[in-house]
Design a protein around this nucleic acid. Sequence first.
DNA 1: TAGATTGTTAATCGATTAACAATC
DNA 2: TAGATTGTTAATCGATTAACAATC
Lengths: 229, 229
Amino acid sequence: MRVRRAPDVVIRRLPLYLRVLENIDIDKHGPSISSYELGDAAGVTPDQVRKDLSLFGEFGKQGVGYEIDTLRQELRRVLNLDCVIRVAIIGAGSLGIALARYLQGRRRAESNYHLDMVAVFDKDPAKIGLEIDGVRVLPMELLKSKVRELGVRMAVVAVPAASAQEVVDACVDAGIDGILNFAPAKLAVPSHVRLHNSDLSLELMHLAYYLCGAPGENTRTARDSQAEG
Amino acid sequence: MRVRRAPDVVIRRLPLYLRVLENIDIDKHGPSISSYELGDAAGVTPDQVRKDLSLFGEFGKQGVGYEIDTLRQELRRVLNLDCVIRVAIIGAGSLGIALARYLQGRRRAESNYHLDMVAVFDKDPAKIGLEIDGVRVLPMELLKSKVRELGVRMAVVAVPAASAQEVVDACVDAGIDGILNFAPAKLAVPSHVRLHNSDLSLELMHLAYYLCGAPGENTRTARDSQAEG
DNA sequence: TAGATTGTTAATCGATTAACAATC
DNA sequence: TAGATTGTTAATCGATTAACAATC
């Protein structure tokens, strides 16, 4: 029932807010948090916090702030994280394994972590049957049936660039809604599927721009040094 | 000698352009590329390509386009990728190892890849001496001396959130300029150091927003479906 | 009540898109 | 020359910041 669509730049900040709220100990802190505190912890201005949140409802009280429990719950709801989202990882190479372990670790560390990594797929027969933190590696042939069976809604693609498009096609065919791609490739998906990309190599090239001066020296003036990312 | 500082949003697109140029076979394609072609391959409008590039110089020819070789070289120069940048990875857990392999793989796959992963560090004695794709894991105590010795300028931080700040402090102390952090933590660095963050968990929460409807169904209207980076 | 803090409107700032003269 | 395509200026669009009345 949202009237105006929220811009993506706002959506990207919501998980930041949510994380701050997840990490607050209410017993120590008290039940409320102001836009000043929340902004400070998340690295944005209080104005922005209020403007962002106001796009989704009126969650605060004048003179008091936002009730932490309530806001947390609202943000989870907005982000579709109010019930478990099952995630599959495609590719059991070192990156796929690392991502799988990372997600399992987050889930163990954070109660109420609503991303549940339930399966890893690979086409290499040598990888099938491996166990990664309690989850077995399955053959690609089972993707469609297992996605249905387990209720998987998101996929993390960690295969070589050359096979990324075919893997993504298979995910789409299996009915997956959202894909986070780690392969350094430009991929095509139908418009009802959301594709995001995370590319280490692009990130490093981006970062390289901000390195100062020639190797070994530090002569050039530092450019814009706001933290990114 | 840049007159106006280029906005970061532009800088983030340059690696995209550079990658397109790196992947073109000049023998097949011919020596020039238009802003239309380049934009198409990079996923941006031709107008934007021209505007972005014009911030750094006049690289094109009216009626012809941009000479691929020249533009590639210019982009490398702008991004500080015209000579090798040595990178260290901090943390030899599964993510650190995966990132190390990924970088080694890119370097093997792409001639002229100017990011050179030269060292991995860990504080766990059990990890010291391990070899990852030909690079040895060194103890954190050697960070400062090795950074000097090898000319390391960038660090990739892949340690648990709890130790990320101390690791970043050590990197800064060792004279490192640019840091790409994978730990889910908000870190502080002095203003002359550039810190970027890459956070799988935030990415997945961001993506979750765009999942349609309740688990199992697909009822809600798809929202903004432009592909994101 | 007085102080604090929200939600929202208005003002500013910046980025993208459109348009086109210059020119290869 | 005619068609293509650049670099740049102007117009539009969107996001951030500032300000403040409402109110807890």
